[in-house]
């Protein structure tokens, strides 16, 4: 017996669905258009709009400050570039310390617990201040007292605490039977971790870590508190000299140009992972 071949052309169901989809698109476009029109038409009616426009969206100042701000942003990129790999490594060390099961090594585990508790509990900017001014205050000679070194260390220490917890969730998400199976094959505990558990765990937490990296991209600006003239500080200098907030808007736009693609990529990774799981 052969199955009946479908009739050529669309089924009634498909036609109905296409029509429903089209109607959805039209309604979505109309409602978006209404909201945008309301914002564009109503906001300029506010009595202070002209002053706000002059202070925050000043085209002349935008053009004047953009090149220098973009140049300052390179410093943010550089700080990010050397912090990110160090965070990835140090966080893994902390996560592995927390996973130690040997009773003799319990102090390591205690250290990891205290570490994540402390650094997740203190605001980043405070850590930057305390380490960035405190450690060089001990009397280190130049260049070892550079705010770049100690400011970066503050970021690395704080972010590692979060990323270590993400790693740990990944490690714990691997079923215990995997570890048992690896051990029963004669692998040592460390080999089981290295060849069986970590490869799976790390892959699983990539999307979560992407979110941390997006956050880090913005938080590198906190280093400006202890001296480095990166984009946020440069914008602040322009703001003071020009008595105008447009440079902050420029800085925000520069940040968005980097973080929005990164955010979309993270979303894409999460969606891909969800598809693979279901």
């Amino acid at each position: 017996m052969t199955l009946p071949t479908p009739a050529p052309g669309k089924t009634r169901r498909e036609i109905h669905e296409a029509r429903a989809r089209q109607r959805g698109i039209v309604i979505a476009s109309l409602s978006t258009l209404c909201v945008v029109a309301a914002v564009v038409l109503l906001v300029p009616l506010a009595p202070g709009w002209e002053a706000v426009q002059k202070s925050f969206f000043n085209g002349e100042i935008f053009l004047r400050t953009f090149p220098k701000l973009l140049q300052a942003f390179l410093l943010d990129v550089a700080i990010f570039a050397w912090c990110a790999p160090l965070i990835a490594v140090w966080a893994l060390v902390i996560a592995l310390c927390r996973d130690v099961r040997n009773p003799a090594l319990y102090p390591l585990r205690l250290f990891a617990v205290l570490y994540t508790d402390i650094f997740r509990g203190v605001p980043v900017v405070l850590v930057v201040y305390l380490i960035g001014f405190g450690v060089p205050g001990l009397g280190l000679p130049r260049p070892w007292n550079s705010p770049y070194i100690w400011g970066s260390l503050a970021l690395i220490l704080t972010y590692s605490a979060y990323v270590a917890e993400i790693y740990r969730s990944g490690i714990e998400s691997i079923h215990a039977s995997q570890r048992a199976a690896a051990l029963s094959l004669g692998m040592s505990k460390s080999d089981a971790m290295r060849f069986v558990i970590l490869p799976q765990a790390l892959r699983r937490v990539v999307p979560a870590n992407m979110n941390m990296f997006i956050a880090l991209q913005k938080d590198v600006a906190l280093l400006s508190f202890i001296g480095p003239v990166e984009v946020l500080r440069q914008a602040g200098v322009f703001k003071s000299l020009l008595a105008n907030f447009t440079p902050y808007v420029v800085a925000a736009i520069i940040f968005l140009c980097v973080t929005i693609p990164a955010t979309r990529y993270a979303d894409y990774l999460i969606a891909k992972q969800n598809r693979a799981r279901s």
Binding site: F133, P136, G137, P141, N145, P147, S224, F225, G227, V229
Partner: peptide
């Protein structure tokens, strides 16, 4: 060399104390 910039006078003094500037 590029100068380092701070939020307020107290921070400038702090950086000078720790020999960063």
């Amino acid at each position: 060399s590029d100068p380092l910039l701070y939020n307020d006078n107290a921070d400038v003094v702090e950086a000078m104390k720790s020999n960063q500037i």
